[in-house]
Structures are given as C-alpha cells and as structure tokens.
Design a protein around this nucleic acid. Structure first.
Lengths: 163, 163
DNA sequence: TATTGTTATACTCTATAACTATA
DNA sequence: TATAGTTATAGAGTATAACAATA
C-alpha cells in the first residue's frame, strides 16, 4: 500500500488518536512565543478582570502614576502604542476618574496626564495582582531563569547584542 | 513651589523630553513578552505577505502537509486554536486549492485534511521565508541562547519544571 | 447523549489615513 | 508646514454559545 500518489487527493486513513507531528513548527521561536504570550495574556486578563482593567489599560495607568504630567505622545512612545489606540484607553481611565487630562499652558495642543488619588490606589492594587499572576504562571521558573528570559526577549529585534 | 497637593489636579510641569520611568513595568515578564511577541508577529506578517499567508494560516498548512489525513479537531488541539477559528482558515486554504477537505468514510461527521501538490510547494516556500525572518529578527541571539529561550517559554504555565 | 464541524458574534490588540486645533 | 490629539476604520487573533448532522 505504498500509494502516495502525486496529484490525487489520496484517501489517507485518518490517524485516529495518533500523535500530531509538530516538529517543524517547534523549531521556530515565533511558535513558542505565540503560545507563551497567549498563555500569559489569558491568565493576566482573568486576573485583572477583578478590578475591571485590561493589560494595556493597567500599563498606561501605572506609567501615568509614575510619571505625572506626561503627555500622550510620550506615553504612546514609551509603551509602543500607536497614538490613536491610546485615546480610548485614556477615555476609559478618565471616565472612571483614575486619570486626568489637563491642558498644558505652554502648548495648548497637548494634554498633561495626572493620576487621581483613586488612580494611584488602583495602580497599587493592579501591581499586586500582576505580581501574584506572574508568580503563579511562572512558578516553574527560577528567578535567575526569569531574568535570562527577560534579557533574551529584550534583545530580540536589536540587530546585535552590544556592537 | 512644593505644590504636590493631594486631591487637586496638580498643574505639573510636563517633563518635556524627560526620560519616562518604565521601571515598574519592566519587572514583569509579561511586559517584555508582549513587546517581543508583537515585534516577531509584525515582521512575520510582513514576511508572509509575499505569499499571501497569515501566521496561523501558514502554521495550519505546514501541519496538514506533515500530517495528511488529519481531522480538524485534532488540528485545532495541536495548534491550540479554537475549532470555530479554524473554519475560516481552512476555507481560505481550500479556496486557494492548497488543502482538501474530504469526508472520512468511517465517521461521516469528520473531514480528513490533505494537502494538494500546490499546498506542499507553498508550505516549503513558507518555511524558507519563516527561517529567513527568524534569522533576521534573532540575529543578535546565538543558537544556544535561542534554545534556552525556547525551553524557558515552553515551561511557562506548567506548574513545576520536573516534579 | 456526545462529538464534528459550523455559524454568529464579540472582545482585544494593533495599524493607517485623515481630520482639528494649535504651534 | 509641522505637531498633538482625535476620529474612523480595518485587520488579525482569540473566545463563547448554539446549531445541524452524525455517532
């Protein structure tokens, strides 16, 4: 039954509970990155749901808390978000009274972003929840391995490590 | 001018070109994961555009090529895609005559997936392009570091490393 | 009853073009 | 003219509920 024809549909036996051969995809970093990122993102979303924040919403809030007076374009650059995508995030944070947009006197095009007291409090809670989340999801990885992982990921995309 | 009031908006000086303090976010693996995954995904999408495939479409094609006769539910499990999301992917691959859906005689609910000759050819091309893409994006990382990165990412989510 | 594939739908994240109001 | 923020829109990727056909 060596019937591997070349142009016919080939009525192959469905391999029932056979093991799927993923080997070729596994050689790619991107494949594992997608799965890991997806796993982290799913658990993180579940975690932050408790305080009704999304991943990026929380990132924005935390950065505003640590950098009061920041302008939107600076924030977008810092977090690698496109300016348009920041708008709805800030709309949400502002409507929940966590962040304020106030006109910059010296440049009336820009807004200065400042956290409210509620924003600072929620940021603290968000950081605690995020820490719990990472400790849970990364339980199988030692602190040293964690920093290795981080520094390797930081080097992705930068042509050479140090040159 | 020590005016850090507590409940007022605080007319903070916008810190012009000042450096943004990201330190708190940088302590989280998820932050770096998001950026790295986003970078890989963007370059990968650009790369596969040449043969009009998306990341997942290419993953599906490659797995079907290596596992002819596979059923959709098996494929969905293998790639960690929800069954509904696989449908449109296969619709596209089928309409481009890269993959065939044929009824399984022994279970008329299921489809056996088989690649066409064109599908096999395009899969080869896709793998070559993906390899080029990874070599480019991961240029700053040695092969050893690549495997370290992969094995660390594989261990994310699995409670304990070996116990 | 349970499973395979499907439809419909929705939410998140990302990306681009074009507008407005200032500069 | 250039920039800050905005609007509108589109495309990926992911997730859930519910259905028809079949087991």
């Amino acid at each position: 039954m060596d019937s591997h024809n070349k142009n016919a549909p080939i009525a192959v036996e469905p391999e029932a509970d056979a093991v799927i051969d993923d080997a070729i995809l596994h050689q790619f970093v991107g494949y594992h990155m997608r799965r890991a990122a997806n796993l982290l993102q799913a658990d993180m979303a579940r975690t932050l749901k408790e305080i009704d924040l999304r991943m990026i919403t929380m990132s924005v809030l935390v950065v505003v808390v640590d950098n009061p007076g920041l302008r939107q374009s600076q924030l977008a650059d810092a977090l690698a978000i496109e300016r348009p995508n920041l708008v709805s995030i800030l709309d949400e944070l502002e409507s929940r009274n966590l962040v304020l947009r106030t006109r910059v006197p010296t440049d009336r095009r820009a807004y200065a972003l400042t956290p409210t007291a509620a924003g600072r409090t929620l940021a603290q809670r968000a950081l605690a929840l995020t820490t719990e989340h990472e400790d849970r999801v990364l339980a199988g990885i030692t602190p040293e391995e964690r920093s290795t992982l981080v520094s390797l990921m930081q080097r992705i995309g930068s042509a050479s490590g140090d040159a």
